[in-house]
Amino acid sequence: MIEYALEYPDKLLYPLLEHIQMLVITLMISLILAAFLTIISIYSRLLSKTLVYFFSVIYAVPSIALFALLIPLTGLGKTTAIIVLVLYNQYVLLRNFLEGLDEVDPAVTEAATGIGMTKMQLLIKIKIPLSKRALFTGIRISVVTTIGIATIAAFINAGGLGSILNDGLRTVNTVKILWGSILAAGLAIVTNTILSKFERKL
């Protein structure tokens, strides 16, 4: 196994970097979209419920099924993968964001509203600072989820660590399967550990 890594380091490194690239792009789009949806959600209870419900239904659909359903529309490759990943992230982020913001002591928000803050001021000056940990938890979970589902995206030619697995499966190569699994698991565990450490400091 070690020999394989020494002999073809780029065959492991390149998919790893591709995986991280997919993660970063997905995360940036997801965060912008989720922030936007969260802000419009605080203005309408009905809208926020509808959005969460809508994304929860999408989230319940297995990723491979969602990939399959999007292929006729957006084809194989990274674009489809990132669309699916962003959709999944919306549920994780939106739910955690809204729940986190809701957990702020009602007495505090009432006091803030009482002294004349607008909803936007309440959000920025009171709710976000008081719930930053819960907000970050949402981001951490979405990062880990993205790393996991991105491995599956290799089946639709999106590259990443899943491509090592796919190759290994096709050529019945245990070494590749092991490397792919270990790198995917390792990336998820390491990222989660680092983010958890950071989260505890918040």
Binding site: V144, T151, I152, L178, A184, A185
Partner: peptide, 17 residues
């Protein structure tokens, strides 16, 4: 908790060997 973090595909395939 660690198990939960590992991508599902990795768990599925790690069992093959």
């Amino acid at each position: 908790q660690v198990l939960r973090v590992i991508p599902s595909l990795a768990i599925l395939l790690l069992l093959i060997p």
